[in-house]
């Protein structure tokens, strides 16, 4: 009975629940689904992480390669993020070129990386003006149940922390790079960040960490990305219901708390792996 009601009149169905300040999956309005993190499971990658945010599953693998730096910034290496939403993860994605949503998410991740001062890109320099590391960060969704941005950023961050790059020396005479087979190093992460996504239901109710159903029914979505030390990094609000400054302030506050949680989750996970 409940299932038919849900299919026929999803909005009404949700309203019934939200009246009671509870969501159909049993969460409170401001509650975030349980977050499970696993790092280093893909050994062919230089760094990898798998995140489960409720049912939403994202895996991120990072491969390093050599590249020439840009002329303007001869000392800086760079990151190339890409988000993939393959048909495997949900019936709503079709085989073929990347969906618009995948492209938008990729762009958002790239913008966030640019503005976040996440790591010191000069760390990735091998030989000035000649050779730098480029890190391809591929995030792939395996199970799509909403809030892909949060999940992707957690996976990305954890994978970056997991990266081990071989030490490279340049042979003076030949100019060729030699990779050390025994020594490697991790990246020096300066400033971590995390995203928190909110959906607006029925132009009024703010829900944190929406599922795919909630995203579909939402009249507006907003993602707030803040750094570990609480500074605002990016806000992504693609149209929809307008929100008041107070509401936005409230969201930022909640995002700051969430960012701290995520960072300590990553710390704990990495610690447990290393031990």
């Amino acid at each position: 009975m409940a299932a038919e009601f849900k299919t026929a009149q999803p909005v009404e169905y949700y309203k019934q629940f939200l009246k009671e300040e509870v969501r159909p999956d049993g969460r409170e309005l401001g509650e975030i689904r349980s977050t499970i993190l696993n790092v280093g499971s893909i050994s062919t990658a230089h760094g990898s992480a798998l995140v489960k945010l409720g049912n939403t599953t994202v895996v991120c693998g990072i491969k390093g390669e050599f590249a020439s730096p840009t002329v303007e910034e001869p000392k800086k290496g760079y990151l190339v993020p890409n988000v993939d939403l393959p048909p495997l993860c949900s019936a709503q994605f079709k085989p073929g070129p990347p969906s618009i949503q995948a492209q938008v998410t990729s762009q958002l991740v790239a913008d966030t990386l640019l503005s976040s001062n996440l790591l010191n890109y000069e760390d990735l320099c091998i030989k000035e003006g000649n050779m730098v590391w480029v890190l391809y960060c591929d995030m792939m969704c395996l199970d799509y149940d909403g809030n892909i941005i949060d999940a992707c950023l957690i996976a990305l961050l954890a994978a970056l922390r997991n990266v081990r790059l071989p030490v490279v020396t340049i042979d003076e005479d030949t100019g060729l790079a030699e990779l050390s087979s025994t020594e490697d190093r991790s990246l020096n992460i300066v400033n971590q960040f995390a995203a928190t996504t909110f959906s607006v239901f029925d132009d009024s109710i703010l829900l944190v960490d929406p599922t795919v159903e909630e995203e579909d029914l939402a009249t507006g979505l907003m993602t707030v990305i803040v750094t570990q030390d609480g500074r605002l990094c990016n806000i992504h609000k693609p149209g929809g219901t307008p929100l008041s400054t107070d509401q936005i302030q409230d969201c930022i506050g909640r995002a700051q708390t969430r960012a701290k949680e995520i960072c300590s989750l990553i710390d704990d996970t990495l610690d447990s792996i290393e031990r």
Partner: peptide, 11 residues
């Protein structure tokens, strides 16, 4: 890790 002929990095 190994370097491939093309100059890429292999793990």
């Amino acid at each position: 890790v190994k370097k491939t002929r093309k100059g890429g990095v292999m793990k």
